[in-house]
Amino acid sequence: MYPPNFEYYVPSTVEEAVGLLDQHQGDAKILAGGQSLIAMMKLRLAQPAILVDINRIPNLAYVREDDKFLRIGATTRTAELSRSTIVQARYPILSDAGREIADPIVRNRGTVGGNVSHGDPGNDLPACLLAMGAEFEIHGPKGIRTLPARGFYQDTFVTSVATNEMMTEIRVPRPGAGTGSAYSKMERKVGDFATVGVGARVVVDSSGKILNAGIGLTNVGPTAIYATAASDFLAGKTDSDAVLAQAAVLARDASAPSPDNRGPVDFKKDMVRIWTRRTLRKALDRAKGGK
């Protein structure tokens, strides 16, 4: 199978890329890792007239931490997340996800920026970034804006990024003391999208009280979902199996899955409950110093 014909541009700066997107608004798509886009083009699910290949823009692939954020450049390959020692040590939710996205070869090409801005509810990183309270740097013809992950996902394949804008950096707030995070994915086989994926972040004090929490859900609705009620419920609660079970029910109620060959609605909702409970437990264990 060949993709339909397109015009191919290779900008060498973000400004040039945005200029091309602006000039060809609506007809141009960004080509990052291409692991979703090229398949969609072959299947004629997408037929952009113009591809703007951002892979040769320098200084757009990096993972670094400053005093406020973990900063991930948009063209960082997802394989880099689980290889980064900073991510492994302090953002295990991202290294967990980095081991679960698609398969190892796809992860060599697929980018963090693509995974985050494609808007497919089956992508794994959005749930993690919702849980972590991340924000995104977006370049457009009028300048740079920053958008929080929460509220970014509007519908399937629809995000707050306009057709003449480009995501350049993903910023995850630096976790304070007592923070633990984890991502778990229920999948039928390697390379499949999640039946259910759950990202969880918790912050505990020395007495074991949960100060705050964030829970994101993968592939159980038209977009990645931030489970607000479940996350808010945990704030101020003392860690116990009963508390986690209650939060898991609230997360289940926040999900709106569709039936497909991964299972019917009731099954998926119940899996949200179970995997939320397990993922919260893993995050809490990590917050308390475990692996």
């Binding site: 191919y8 080509l31 291409g34 692991q35 090229i38 398949a39 290949d53 070869i105 060599n108 090409r109």
Partner: peptide, 10 residues
């Protein structure tokens, strides 16, 4: 390693 069916020659 890359999947060459998901990678443009250009």
């Amino acid at each position: 390693p890359v999947k060459s069916c998901m990678f443009l020659a250009v």
